[in-house]
Design a binder for these strands. Structure first.
Lengths: 339, 339
DNA sequence: AATTTCTATTAGATCGGTCTACCAACTAAG
DNA sequence: CTTAGTTGGTAGACCGATCTAATAGAAATT
């Protein structure tokens, strides 16, 4: 029941360990007759290549790390899927950690991944990551890191949607509907993405007839529960906006539910619009107006960036913004002033 | 720019490599004065523990592997989240691969994970896994494997919902509505889960007034696109069931969409019921009747099982079935005969 | 005082690969 | 015949930890 090593293989094939190793890596110096013999021995003995051992001499481990907050949000699930695909296609195996938006958890995950000698890390930072210790482990090991969707450091690569543009597009659409008040609901309070989306909304609404006050917006967790809670908080303050802008589609789901609980009909009594445009947005009733932020593109771009940086660590930090696109649907199209 | 090793640390602290190693692992034989000195040196030099090196001597790598088909299905996302949590809490780092239900891809992922010396693997098998090569790598390395939600081998541990019971519960509910015909839509054709659900439906429907013919069911991919396609295939054959049973909630989403495209109102013109009960089921319009199969429980149970087996590989293969629970909602409650 | 036990520490083998440097045998060129 | 080059292969150091067996010195026991 002992492990079969290259040494066992080489003995069985009547060659040296070095030769077996060369066969393993397809070195052209080894003639076919020899390599066939070695490969036969491998098959017969049931040899399993030990990457960890190989990694000790080579400088790379052929593993990457990915830390995201929560894949029950389909936006992050899509992002995760493309990143895994890119990593797999490039020959890497992927460590994954879900931080649940907790810095402490995220820190532990970063730490163990670095200890496992990952060649690079995709990080969707938990809110609060700008605080000290998160960076500590990153630059102690000088492992390449690409920030996804949110950022906390200017010195690390970043790929995300152009949130400001997304906010502007949404604002323009909402004001074109003739709404007079709009409010933002949901999203983690201090994340860069939320700040940028608010900025986009504000600039988009200036000069329009819509009153938008960012200080009235309700920050919450980025999921349906957050949406319900956020919209409740707004309405219970006596604020009755014409249009509710959800921080994300995940949040919008909760907003729909809470509105209905209060006998309000989304798309008729109040418009709802959102960010992300996950597949579900189109299937909801009413279909949800949303600004698409293309998680697949972000993932693909991030993978390119990280692989490039692994090849050349001296590269300048890059920021790559993905252009959003507004998808107008019935949740806002049918809006009209309350009678 | 070179890596700091335990050797560097020990020299800086004026002790031997062995002593530094003992400090690292908190061995009680080392007095505090010494270990403080060593820990100080570690902090000053920016030492990073190299687990791969440690793994070469120890027999474990403190990593686990998880292979699932697609986390854009919230059911699998939930399963994945709990497994990651359990792994993390037990001190393991998790490799993740998404097979996209392709055996070839799954095989490659199994192979690299085994080569990375994982201590155990959670496997949600791709359809078609019963075929030879998938097992090859598993028993060549004799790595513990727990099958999730579907199975292809009796010799490996398995945790999943009690699909037969789930099918029965659904069938009983549907016949209690007074429906006269029901059809199953969606799901990967040869998966164990689908076979079992059909079996449950069949036994549940026998003796009732409902005509259920499994051979009329439309097998598809397990997502919304599959649901749309499946229901289209059924209706285009001229079959007009009273109740459509979706293979999963993900499939049901597509069924809702396709029915509406044909100006049919789910819950009024035709009942819809489903398996899984993801969070979204309740938020749909109409809210979707579904049998909850508790992915969180499955994940937790699977983690327990795998960790136990790692501790004691001689354990008998176990099968653990999670009891389902029917959640009746408006998508079936309002059903009445077409006029 | 001699022996035993205990404490703090260490040298050196080891895990399973890779990599450098070198070698032997044969062919080709001058 | 000598020299240079090519082909096919190998010995042994190396990566960075762990682990076993051993040791020197102090304390305790006889």
């Amino acid at each position: 029941m002992k492990k079969v090593t290259l040494h066992d293989v080489s003995r069985a094939a009547g060659v040296s360990r070095s030769t077996a190793s060369l066969v393993l890596r397809g070195d052209p110096r080894i003639p076919e007759a020899t390599s066939d013999r070695v490969r036969l021995a491998m098959a017969e003995l049931g040899y399993v290549y030990n990457r960890q051992a190989a990694n000790m001499r080579r400088s790379e481990s052929m593993t990457l790390g990915l830390i995201v907050t929560d894949i029950r949000n389909p936006y992050f699930a899509g992002l995760t899927m493309t990143i895994e695909e890119a990593a797999h296609d490039a020959g890497y195996t992927l460590f994954v950690g879900y931080s649940r938006d907790e810095v402490e958890r995220q820190y532990m995950q970063l730490e163990t991944m670095v200890q496992q000698q990952v060649d690079g890390i995709f990080l969707l930072p938990a809110t609060g990551s700008e605080l000290a210790p998160v960076c500590g482990i990153i630059d102690r090991s000088s492992v390449p890191v690409v920030q996804l969707a949110r950022y906390f450091s200017e010195e690390l690569d970043y790929v995300g949607p152009d949130n400001v543009a997304a906010g502007q597009q949404l604002a323009q659409h909402v004001s074109s509907l003739g709404a007079s008040t709009a409010v933002l609901v949901g999203g983690p309070e201090h994340s860069s993405a939320r700040t940028e989306r608010i900025k986009g909304l504000e600039t988009g609404f200036t000069g329009s007839a819509v009153a938008f006050d960012a200080s009235l917006s309700a920050a919450t967790t980025n999921n349906a529960a957050g949406g319900s809670e956020g919209v409740a908080r707004v309405l219970d303050q006596g604020i009755w906006p014409d249009c509710i802008i959800a921080y994300s589609d995940a949040v919008a789901l909760g907003i729909y539910a809470e509105l209905r609980r209060r006998n309000l009909d989304p798309g008729r009594d109040v418009s709802v619009a959102s960010f992300d445009d996950i597949a579900m947005a189109e299937l909801l009733l009413p279909p949800l107006t949303s600004v698409s932020t293309y998680p697949e593109l972000i993932g693909r771009r991030a993978a390119e960036l990280l692989l490039n940086r692994i090849r050349d660590p001296a590269l300048q930090p890059q920021r790559s913004l993905i252009e959003p696109a507004l998808k107008v649907r019935a949740s806002t199209a049918q809006w009209r002033p309350r009678t």
